[in-house]
Design a protein around this nucleic acid. Structure first.
Lengths: 203, 203, 203, 203
DNA sequence: AATGAATGAGCCTTCATTCAT
DNA sequence: GATGAATGAAGGCTCATTCAT
């Protein structure tokens, strides 16, 4: 008697799962376009063209341009956070944490420069468009969480001012990353040294 | 024989000066609109409406939407830099510099929140649109210059890593400023204490 | 030799009957949406969502959006006509007919306001889209038939100008019904008195 | 000292007047398309194409598709009301009023069939879309005013139930007009006789 | 028999830019 | 010098319809 509902529910779940897979697939294509052109200059048509999707499909899976972009940024968060977290996990003791953290940050600058560009773009948009604020805020909390984790792993028992440490670290990260876009990008080693010195002072 | 050219040149200069006055006048009106709506959501019509200018005039004085915006950001720079510079000028000795600098930064957060928002917006656009890079870079140099000046006034004879100090300070500034936009803005005193502690550590 | 065809035919008819049941079921759901939003603003997705039907099913049973809507209006006709006819059936003599007719019309305004709104919508569309004309015309003939029946029941042996009487009654009906949508709907009693007076003059 | 403001005001008025002329011009083109295709099937592109206007111009003069359509209907009102009013003006005494009124109505059916079609369309839309209600209501008041004027001209000192008379007349008008769209349009004389008989009974 | 994913044409609207005056 | 009317390309979004499953 209750078998059918169970079956139906199972089917609905399978469908939802499938839908989520597709959404992520679309979002990943969208990110490619957004990373390149930026929030302001990426139209849904651009996204549809760059991937092999029809314009209609974008709206079939997402309510809105905004909805799609928020989804994209959410994915970014997951990737970046899990990257850094994984890197920190293996580290034991202050020295190793500084090493691993610096290493991970620099690697991310080199490998995901464009993704970070997008993140800074959306974060700035949030200053003007309240719609973006919840996601941005949520992500920023995760990033602060990473810094806190680093502190704890480094042996600090009582961590204060994590937010400030994040802000400061983010300022440097952004500055260095932006420098890599310009005409005179720096060597990997130099960036690494900078982060090391900074973390050595703060952590 | 060379009298006429001189006269003509004088007239041309007068003309140019007059034109510059007008351009600045327009730009100041434009800034009002840009601060409110942000780069992505401010149309030339918005600007024309907010001021008492015709749409045509905007293009009469500026080649381009971009041209206008760059001009606006340039003006911003002058104002902000001269504000901070003026504040630092009166300070003597490390303690006074820390006081004056913190004070000036916090004041600017409260009085010019919207202007900074615009600055961060344009700076982010520059990551995607190379047209903005020269201005942004130029302004950032000036800002670094301020930090250097602060170091020198504070008694440092040999200043290294000013850029990094700027980046770090900018990160904190941006973080605090962004927090003021949200639902729980902080007290003036708290922001002041934060900057003081930070400068005390670095300067 | 002709047994099989008979069997086949029977099966085909059963199939058709089943199909008709389903079509009616779909149409009734569709009417709910159409009544609320109107012809111009009701998409097939609206209909599918409001009921528990898939979008594909709509096209499986109906050729076309238009096809579906025509079917809906046809159902409306049957309901309204049978309502009024039933009401008139019991009435004997002119006075009772006037009573019953007025009563039925006012009741319909109150109970089926939205349905009438839809009818007027489709009837208007027919002025522009010839596809709708046959149904609209057919329904209007039925409505005229009702008026004729009323005349006859009221004792008129030779009824002339039924069409005109219908038109005139319809004008009043529409006017009153539309008034009920506005900010100052009238009391039941008032509408009733209006119809009574009108029918008293004409019937 | 107050000459300049006067001048400026004069110029502003001239400009406004010019703008109004242009708006009317556009609206008249739009009406041509609307009359033919109906509200639901006339896109702004249709309108722009049918006339020699750019799509942008439509939005330069009107806020909205709705804004434009409301303007069109307003113009219709003015024309129709002034037509009928002019016709009634010359009439003296009941008989002449009946003559003139019937004549004017029939003429309007023949000459402005499409315009009335549009009016009925918009009036029906108003049942679903509240935006249209104010205009529709305003126009309907004017039409009721015409009926009242006819009553008065016909010698009635105390006119009651004008609204009802309007509703009833409108019902007949709509029915006859719609009949003209179909395959068997009637002769002018027949329509005339119908209105005459109707007015003879009511007026 | 039924589903719903996918399509693409079309809609309304915005906007930087041009140009006649 | 200055205006604002006019343009047309592009953007976000809706929707009837098709089709593989």
């Amino acid at each position: 008697m209750n078998e059918m509902p169970a079956k139906l529910q199972a089917r609905a779940e399978r469908k939802n799962a499938k839908r989520d897979v597709k959404k992520r697939q679309i979002a990943e294509s969208a990110i490619l376009a957004l990373k390149e052109l930026g929030y302001a200059h990426t139209s849904l048509r651009d996204i549809a063209d760059k991937s092999d999707m029809s314009l209609g499909m974008l709206h079939y899976y997402f309510d809105d341009r905004t909805d799609l972009i928020i989804y994209c940024v959410t994915i970014y968060k997951e990737d970046f956070v899990s990257d850094i977290t994984a890197a920190l996990e293996k580290a034991n003791g202050r020295a190793e944490v500084i090493d691993a953290f610096s290493e991970a940050l620099v690697t991310s600058i080199f490998d995901h420069e464009m993704t970070h560009r997008l993140w800074y773009d959306i974060r700035t948009q949030a200053m003007f468009d309240a719609t973006f604020r919840p996601v941005v805020s949520e992500i920023e909390q995760k990033l602060i969480g990473i810094v806190r984790a680093a502190f704890e792993k480094a042996g600090h028992t009582e961590v204060t001012n994590v937010e400030l440490s994040y802000a400061l670290l983010d300022g440097v990260f952004r500055f260095l990353m932006q420098g890599q876009i310009g005409p005179k990008p720096k060597e990997r080693a130099e960036l690494l040294a900078t982060f090391r010195a900074l973390l050595d002072q703060f952590l």
